[in-house]
């Protein structure tokens, strides 16, 4: 039975990131979460596995902290999970991430499809799917809005800026799905309770034969300073607030 892999990233919840007085960031207290669009990728992989008569496998590359994501991912429908447990994930760039994931895909064997989310909540670099495709030298389809299968062929509809493009590819392939692909439902409680019983395979960094040295050097990371007037009319009657606003906009010359 072929496998459909859903790649997901365990990221810091951006709403928990604190900005220090000097604009540096404190991510230490941030809770983890499955990257928003990766939920759609997991759901898409589960549906694809159903259509192909295969098994959906959740795959993540992360630090030891990412272990806590496995039950969450499994509660969303995949039959099993694979976890590349590597401290190097903390410093990984697009190149390292794709090589690690691709190496795991090779280890898992008999993979017909790799599904990624269009971009991660933290970096939103949108490199992973095309890069995995390049490393494996498999066909890649990005910006996928819907997908169907015809034997060993995959027919995907892509959303571009000005058109919807239908393309056909052979399996195995890599796709990156848009959030519009499905609604990625909140998992039911039963699925949560049974998640822990599903098999998990763990790979260590050394198992994969991948060069974990990142290609980019991060030189600074700081909060983006929003520089707006923030004149907020919060007191008094609505009519007065509206009058004050229209006067201000007229003065700005934007009406």
């Amino acid at each position: 039975m072929s496998k459909v892999i859903a790649c997901y990233k365990w990221v810091a919840d951006e709403t928990d990131i604190k900005v220090n007085a000097d604009s540096t960031l404190d991510i230490s207290k941030a809770k983890g979460k499955i990257s928003d669009y990766d939920r759609n990728a997991i759901e898409a992989a589960v549906q694809a596995a159903g259509a192909l008569g295969g098994t959906a496998v959740a795959l993540t590359f992360g630090t030891p902290k990412a272990k806590q994501s496995l039950k969450d991912a499994l509660s969303r429908g995949p039959a099993e999970a694979c976890y590349i447990n590597a401290e190097e994930a903390a410093r990984a760039d697009g190149a390292v991430t794709a090589k690690a994931l691709a190496a795991a895909v090779k280890k898992i064997e008999n993979v017909s499809l790799v599904v990624c989310g269009e971009g991660a909540s933290d970096t939103y670099a949108r490199q992973t799917a095309p890069r995995i495709g390049a490393v494996l030298d498999w066909p890649v389809i990005t910006s996928v809005s819907s997908v169907r299968f015809d034997g060993n062929a995959l027919i995907a509809v892509r959303r571009l800026e000005d058109c919807m493009q239908t393309v056909k590819s052979e399996l195995p392939a890599v796709i990156a799905v848009l959030p519009e692909m499905n609604s990625a439902p909140i998992p039911g409680l039963k699925a949560v309770l049974s998640a822990g019983k599903k098999p998990v395979t763990e790979f260590k960094a050394g198992d994969l034969g991948v060069d974990f040295a990142p290609k980019t050097t991060v030189s600074a990371l700081k909060a983006y300073a929003m520089n707006r007037k923030s004149v907020i009319f919060s007191e008094g009657e609505i009519a007065d607030k509206v009058k004050e606003l229209t006067a201000a906009l007229r003065k700005e010359g934007v009406l």
């Binding site: 697009g94 490199q127 390049a134 910006s143 980019t216």
Partner: peptide, 23 residues
């Protein structure tokens, strides 16, 4: 950085195994 530009760029970076900065 259009839909298709981003796709090509990341594939090229993947085949070159080189650094890439998106957007």
């Amino acid at each position: 950085a259009t839909v298709s530009g981003r796709d090509i760029a990341a594939r090229v970076a993947g085949y070159l195994d080189c650094a890439m900065v998106s957007e």
